[in-house]
């Protein structure tokens, strides 16, 4: 564990807590893409298959349970909670996210480290996480008015993988043979997808104006 990875995990944890806070406290999911939440639930379900077979540390297991529990409960809230689901904008959240799942699964079947079920599913989760934010970014462009909590959620979610890139750089220089192109490329693509959001997020923060993405 290094400071970059700890900061990344804490930033990731903060992003899910911000979203849970928003949904649970103000009972609203306005501006939140259910499609992205469903993709993230799938990302964690396919990435943490080893949670019952390989114990790494208490921290690792607890964090996996938090990410699995929070992502599935957020999906439940938006789909089934009698108050929250009324604020879900299904007419705007129209990204066909299975068009993201299929290419990621195909790519994982061809580009992976080992052709085993767990390894292919783990690789699928890496590719899927890289593009999982797309429905959310599309929804933000459409809804225009981005409330603070949703903006903070997207920012923290994007920042965590950026911190992981620093973690991989650190590990590359401190651990022999630490080379993982698949993970690195997926992580860089994921972070780059947030580039324009980060730009407008910092601009709105610097000029102290409401965050608005260009149409």
């Amino acid at each position: 564990m290094n400071i970059f990875r700890l900061a990344g995990d804490m930033t990731h944890l903060a992003s899910v807590l911000v979203l849970l806070l928003k949904i649970h406290t103000i009972k609203s999911c306005a501006g939140v893409s259910l499609k992205t939440q469903e993709l993230y639930a799938l990302v964690f379900a396919t990435r943490y298959l080893d949670i019952v077979t390989d114990f790494i540390s208490v921290y690792n297991t607890v964090m996996k349970l938090i990410f699995l529990g929070s992502s599935f409960s957020i999906v439940w809230y938006i789909r089934h909670h009698r108050v929250v689901r009324r604020s879900y904008d299904k007419d705007q959240d129209t990204f066909r996210h299975y068009l993201l799942m299929i290419p990621c699964m195909l790519l994982a079947l061809f580009v992976h480290e080992k052709f085993t079920f767990k390894e292919v599913m783990w690789t699928f989760s890496l590719y899927l996480e890289a593009v999982a934010i797309l429905p959310q970014l599309v929804l933000l462009q459409r809804t225009r008015n981005i409330d603070n909590l949703t903006g903070q959620y997207v920012f923290l979610l994007g920042a965590y993988r950026g911190l992981y890139i620093f973690n991989w750089i650190y590990r590359y220089f401190t651990e022999p043979h630490f080379v993982h192109w698949i993970t690195w490329i997926a992580g860089v693509v994921q972070t780059l997808l947030y580039a324009d959001f980060f730009y407008y997020y910092f601009e709105s923060w610097k000029n102290n104006v409401r965050l608005q993405l260009p149409a």
Binding site: H12, D54, I56, S57, N60, K64, W122, N167, E175, H180
Partner: peptide
């Protein structure tokens, strides 16, 4: 280097 040393990451 197998992905094993990535499995301690989240």
């Amino acid at each position: 280097s197998s992905n094993q040393d990535l499995k301690d990451e989240l």
